[in-house]
Write a protein that binds this DNA or RNA. Structure first.
Lengths: 254, 254
DNA sequence: ACGGCTACTTGATGCACATCAAATGGATAG
DNA sequence: CTATCCATTTGATGTGCATCAAGTAGCCGT
């Protein structure tokens, strides 16, 4: 899939890569506080620049990797927005996460040398491609990097613990509130507004992630809207009452 | 809790530790195929023996660690059975996993240097205590160990992906079937029967893990029993029709 | 053996969300 | 500009599981 030859774009990519061989280095990347190189000395940072083998553009709807693919690379998102999803034997799809700039993808593949989920771009995206072998090599040389890799994996484990709590214990309104607050917080860390966001995913994808049907997602948005908590215009969400959203999230007591 | 002094046992433990300072080494542990030292040379294995600082016994119901505790150690289960659970702000408890011999606990603490969940023994247990700093040091020296640590964390991520699928998409019967099959498979890898198991956890704990109420767990057990799929005697479960269990697990189509 | 405890089972009822169905509205291609 | 498509909204109805309630059975310490 998506293997149509696009020679022109390839040429552009090559040119860009040459032209900006240091501009796009980790040591210079404006995501460096979010991405792998956090907390490294400038010396170590430069060692790290070699970690990114290439960069890769993914069109909206394109697969960064698919379940079953051989695992050799980790990916750091430079721009764009992804979802990851697993598919059960009988074809049911479960969105396991949404990823944005600075986040690392591909960790699911380490255990079995095969990817365990599909990673699909929800908008045109670009990622840094990092051979995992190389990450491991550098990790052995740079303890700070080693620690950071461990933290990234641990963070993912903890995140999923939270999702389990959400799926097992919370009601539709709580789930959606938690989802919005989580997105807002992550976007805020990237310099976006705390009171506005654009959903890059459909109601169905939100529903899959939150364990509810798209109709229920829609209804819950409408309910929040009627209650003056948010304003919904298609994929554009404006937060009118951040506190009330938090209250819904925290409260079984309501 | 469980802090009553037991000097005699302590003496025994001390004696045992001295007497068997190599018997209990990783290089000699009968869990070595399941636990951290998988695939190491005997030389590397001996390096690893120093990784386990001490061992620790936990009484049934005791906490190995609690949410908020400082994180410094990983734990490898030698004997016994644990649950891990997170507690939300409003006090709802969510069991995030059940762990048995050879499995590693504590990974949730790496990201924030604090544990993010409670680890509670469901029966008397013993664990190997491994200072995480030491694990990291050795990982830098032994690439095979480094890889294995990464795989363990990745495995946990993938496992949780599966739980998300289960919680979001499956019905009560499918969840319980999946749960039983998973336990059976893991016990089988440890030399236990494929057709019999003893549940170390209560119906309520199963329910928490699977996102259903204890009454529903009980009813579903009863249903499986009526259908001749399993035999339930308290915590003892005998599998009468493994295939049918698998069919329930796989099938929305039923 | 006894009382008290906790875990579990089973039944009756209610509700949150799924399902089914239809209408609306943006977006896009011709 | 219009036709088509897909995402979304909204309404009507159904259902799987939660909730409430009561009873049973092991288990533990005395």
């Amino acid at each position: 899939m998506h293997t149509e030859p696009r020679p022109i774009e390839h040429q552009q990519a090559d040119a860009k890569q040459l032209e900006s061989s240091f501009k796009v280095a980790c040591s210079n990347c404006n995501l460096r506080e979010l991405c792998l190189p956090i907390g490294l000395s400038s010396n170590e940072m430069q060692q790290l620049d070699g970690m990114v083998a290439t960069r890769k553009k993914i069109k909206q709807g394109g697969h960064l990797y698919s379940s079953g693919d051989a695992f050799t690379m980790l990916y750091a998102i430079r721009t764009g927005f992804f979802k990851t999803c697993v598919v059960s034997e009988d074809g049911r799809e479960q969105v396991t996460g949404f990823q944005m700039a600075g986040e690392i993808m591909g960790l699911d593949g380490i255990v079995s040398d095969k990817h365990n989920c599909n990673a699909i771009a929800l908008e045109d995206a670009e990622v840094c491609v990092m051979p995992f072998n190389h990450v491991e090599d550098l990790s052995r040389q740079i303890p700070m990097l080693q620690r950071h890799v461990h933290k990234i994996m641990s963070r993912e484990i903890v995140r999923e613990n939270g999702v389990m709590m959400l799926l097992a214990n919370m009601r539709a309104e709580e789930r959606l509130a938690a989802f919005l607050l989580n997105l807002l917080q992550r976007l805020h860390a990237r310099g976006y507004s705390k009171s506005e966001l654009i959903l890059r995913m459909t109601r169905e994808e939100i529903g899959s992630y939150l364990g509810m049907k798209l109709e229920t997602v829609s209804r819950t948005f409408s309910k929040f809207s009627e209650e003056g908590i948010i304003e919904v215009k298609q994929k554009n969400i404006r937060i009118l009452d951040h506190d009330k959203l938090k209250a819904i999230f925290n409260a079984s007591t309501c």
